[in-house]
Simulated scan of single mutants.
Amino acid sequence: MWDYDSLIGKAQRYFLRAEQANSESERDVMAIWLLLGLEFLVRAGLAHTNPALNSDPQSMIDAVLGKENLKAKTIPVSQAIDRLNQLIPPTPESIFKAPANNLINLRNAELHSGMAALDIDVNAWLPAFTRVTDVVCKHIGLDADNIVGRGITTWGRSLIDQADQAVQKEIRERIKAAKDLLAQMRGEERAKREAALFSATLAGALKVGSFWDGPIIDGLSGIRLGPFLFVECPACTNNIPMDIVEVRRSADRLDGDFVHSDAVFIASSLHCPVCELTLTGASEISAAGLSPQHIEEFVEELSDRFTGDEDYDGGLEYGDE
Rank of each mutant, 00 (worst) to 15 (best):
A205S: 15
T278H: 10
F230T: 02
I152K: 00
K192M: 15
D257M: 11
Q168Y: 12
K207Q: 13
D213M: 02
Q165R: 15
E189L: 10
C272R: 07
H271K: 07
S261W: 10
A203L: 11
T154S: 11
E232V: 08
C275K: 04
G149C: 01
E232N: 11
A191K: 13
I152D: 00
Q168P: 05
D164P: 08
G187P: 04
T280F: 12
F265W: 09
A205C: 04
K192P: 03
N238M: 04
T280K: 14
R248G: 11
V167T: 15
C275V: 03
E173I: 07
T154K: 09
A200C: 10
Q165A: 15
V135T: 15
I240T: 12
L220R: 12
A235F: 01
V274Q: 05
M242V: 04
T278S: 12
L225K: 10
F228T: 02
L270W: 09
I171Y: 05
I160W: 02
E246A: 15
P215R: 07
A166D: 15
V231W: 02
E232A: 11
T237C: 02
W212A: 01
M185E: 05
G187E: 11
S250L: 09
G256I: 04
T201P: 05
V264S: 10
I244Q: 01
L279H: 07
A144G: 02
G149P: 02
E276Y: 00
D262E: 12
T153K: 06
A235M: 05
E246P: 15
R248C: 09
G214P: 03
R193F: 02
I244E: 01
V208I: 13
A177H: 11
K179F: 10
G222E: 10
S210V: 07
G187N: 11
C137M: 00
M185Y: 02
G156Y: 11
A235T: 05
L229V: 01
L206F: 00
A263Q: 00
V245Q: 13
A235P: 03
V247D: 06
I216F: 05
C137V: 01
A267D: 06
D262A: 07
K192I: 06
G222M: 08
G214W: 07
L225I: 13
A203T: 08
V135Q: 09
C137R: 00
H260I: 00
C272S: 09
D145H: 11
E170S: 15
R190S: 07
G187T: 06
T278P: 00
S261G: 04
A196V: 03
W212G: 00
S268Q: 14
D145A: 14
L159V: 07
I160M: 10
I160N: 12
Q168V: 14
E188P: 01
D143C: 00
S210D: 14
S268C: 06
